[in-house]
């Protein structure tokens, strides 16, 4: 296993996490860290434990042992809303928009933890500048948008809480190639504004394009990790993921 040369003070760190669903163990001694200002990508195939890692960070699933820290403080024992208030926003798998609420209401739901109304209104304008297509859709039911448009809403919604970090679960899944490029570009933009990104992806070649570091998860264990550039050329990643995932 290669060790990552990570900055001394990561923003998010999972250390020695073991997770179980009943009798079945999902994570084996999982350790991941996300440096401030970086994009970190977790790669892995089906049933590797990727989505559960997201749920651990968000407090939706509790690990049996190990620790999760954000900005030096443990997140264990906090509820999901409390974790969100610490500055972690999420773009869940398959977007999970509030389908019967309008696009505007969906985006504003992202600012649920904030009470500075004037600044929220300004941020809404900022989102419309970042995602110009959403401007005409504001009063439409979120459920009536296309998959790509929904992904835009989900990203805008996550940004509305002014997070220090965004976690994304398969942000490119099920999108047309055009939207895949757009989403990756936006992740880069968001990151340049100072938001750290932790994303879970199946599409390794795309994810490694934009990530700083990456981890490869296989049946609950980290089997490879390091700078994205290095992993991209690593034959083991190529064999395991790049070949197969292009088709998927």
């Amino acid at each position: 296993m290669t060790t990552t040369a990570s900055p001394s003070d990561p923003l998010l760190a999972l250390s020695g996490v073991n997770t179980f669903y009943g009798q079945a163990q999902v994570h084996f001694d999982l350790s991941i860290s996300v440096a401030r200002g970086h994009i970190v990508c977790l790669l892995g195939g089906n049933a590797s434990g990727k989505s559960t890692t997201m749920k651990i960070i968000l407090g939706l699933v509790k690990p049996r042992s190990g620790d999760v820290t954000f900005d030096g403080a443990s997140l264990l024992g906090l509820s999901t809303p409390q974790i969100v208030r610490r500055g972690i926003a999420s773009v869940p798998e398959a977007r999970r928009l509030f389908a019967d609420m309008s696009v505007r209401e969906n985006i504003l739901m992202g600012a649920f933890v904030r009470s500075d109304r004037a600044a929220v209104a300004q941020d809404l304008e900022r989102m419309l500048a970042l995602f110009p297509k959403l401007g005409q859709r504001l009063s439409q039911r979120a459920g009536s948008l296309s998959g790509g448009e929904q992904q835009m809403v989900a990203m805008a919604r996550a940004l509305m809480s002014r997070p220090r970090m965004i976690v994304m679960d398969e942000p490119t899944m099920g999108l047309s190639p055009l939207y895949v490029d757009r989403v990756l570009e936006l992740i880069g933009t968001i990151n340049q504004e100072g938001v750290s990104v932790f994303m879970v992806e199946q599409n390794a070649s795309l994810a490694l394009e934009i990530a700083h570091e990456a981890y490869v998860l296989q049946t609950g264990r980290i089997v490879l990790s390091g700078p994205a550039r290095a992993l991209k050329d690593d034959p083991r990643v190529r064999d395991a993921y790049l070949g197969g995932s292009e088709a998927a």
Partner: peptide
């Protein structure tokens, strides 16, 4: 509409 997603927006269910 979506309990988990609401929690991820910071809603105290």
């Amino acid at each position: 509409q979506d309990r988990d997603a609401a929690m991820q927006m910071g809603v105290d269910v």
